[in-house]
């Protein structure tokens, strides 16, 4: 019996390894989510969600995908096995950015006009806490140690650091003008703020914020950034240049500008396949960039006005 259980556990974890990387792309204009098999570079399913979906957060642990429907004023919870919407959470506001804690116990939702962050217990979504931050919270990311939630406060030109236990503001970090996307290096030591209005990335050394914030110019109206898994390169979507900037994180220099679809917004790194996926709002598709060559290797048709704001690849 014991052997059998052990065998079962091994086979489950093995089949887990064989699961493909899947990308969940929100399509604002269709109110749907396209599911992409990232290795095959094809859309396998399309799921209907609430009105004008924007944000995505994925949990392999819970086998769930959380989608923010900003005009629908709700969060759709999708079961990644059945691809059914199992729950729709009503939000009294305008939910945009979403992120999960590393242990998947808490879903954070940025409420654009109400300047607040909701912290929702994923095991009982009725249990919600909230914290008021600064103007127009957008991108969210939680530190790997689960201690800090970082919020891009777009109209305050700051990244707000929130203690996840007490849900209180610890620190405000000045960045460029109108930060929208925010991401962290895998080790949690570096934060990247994407500043829409001054076309820059603020690279912040979280150990020494004052001394080590670097600003790097990218393309026109950048939205989102994501480092590769060994943290040597940062990929940035430039919505009004139709490009992705590649920054060398050691030299902090722009090393490449890649032409993608029209109005690229959400961007994520697929570590398993060493590729970057970019959702193009203007051309209704996803560009796949090979992160070894930094060339577009494929373009996948999705739905109308693809956004995919957040970490949308489940690996």
């Amino acid at each position: 019996m014991k052997n059998f259980v052990w065998l079962l556990a091994v086979s489950v974890s093995l089949s887990g390894c064989q699961h493909p990387s899947l990308a969940y792309i929100t399509n604002q204009g269709d109110s749907t989510v396209s599911v992409i098999d990232a290795a095959q570079q094809t859309v396998t399913h399309t799921i209907t969600v609430g009105k004008a979906p924007v944000g995505v957060a994925v949990s392999k642990e819970l086998q769930r995908i959380y989608i923010s429907n900003v005009e629908g004023q709700s969060i759709s919870v999708i079961d990644s096995q059945t691809l059914a919407v199992t729950e729709t959470l009503s939000i009294q506001g305008s939910p945009v950015g979403v992120a999960l804690s590393p242990n998947s116990q808490t879903l954070y939702v940025a409420d654009w006009y109400s300047d607040r962050i909701l912290a929702i217990d994923t095991s009982n979504t009725k249990i919600q806490r909230e914290v008021i931050v600064d103007k127009a919270p957008a991108g969210l990311v939680v530190s790997p140690d689960n201690k800090t939630l970082y919020v891009a406060a777009r109209d305050s030109n700051q990244i707000v650091a929130i203690d996840t236990q007490s849900l209180t503001i610890q620190k405000r970090i000045d960045v460029g003008v109108h930060p929208f996307g925010v991401s962290l290096s895998a080790d949690g030591k570096h934060l990247y703020s994407v500043n829409v209005y001054d076309n820059s990335i603020s690279m912040i050394d979280l150990k020494d914020v004052e001394a080590k914030t670097h600003s790097i110019k990218v393309g026109e109206h950048p939205y989102c950034a994501m480092p590769n898994s060994d943290n040597t390169k940062l990929y940035v979507s430039n919505t009004q240049d139709d490009t992705v900037s590649v920054i060398d994180l050691n030299t902090r220099k722009l090393i490449s500008t890649i032409k993608v679809g029209m109005t690229p917004e959400g961007l994520d790194y697929d570590a398993r396949n060493h590729q970057v996926l970019v959702a193009n709002w203007g051309t209704n598709d996803v560009s796949v960039i090979d992160a070894r060559t930094d060339k577009v290797i494929s373009t996948i048709k999705t739905g109308n006005q693809s956004r995919a704001f957040g970490q949308f690849v489940m690996q």
Partner: peptide, 11 residues
């Protein structure tokens, strides 16, 4: 004005 624009761009 300088306040946050809407969350859903139109095309």
């Amino acid at each position: 004005n300088a306040a946050a624009h809407g969350p859903s761009p139109q095309k």
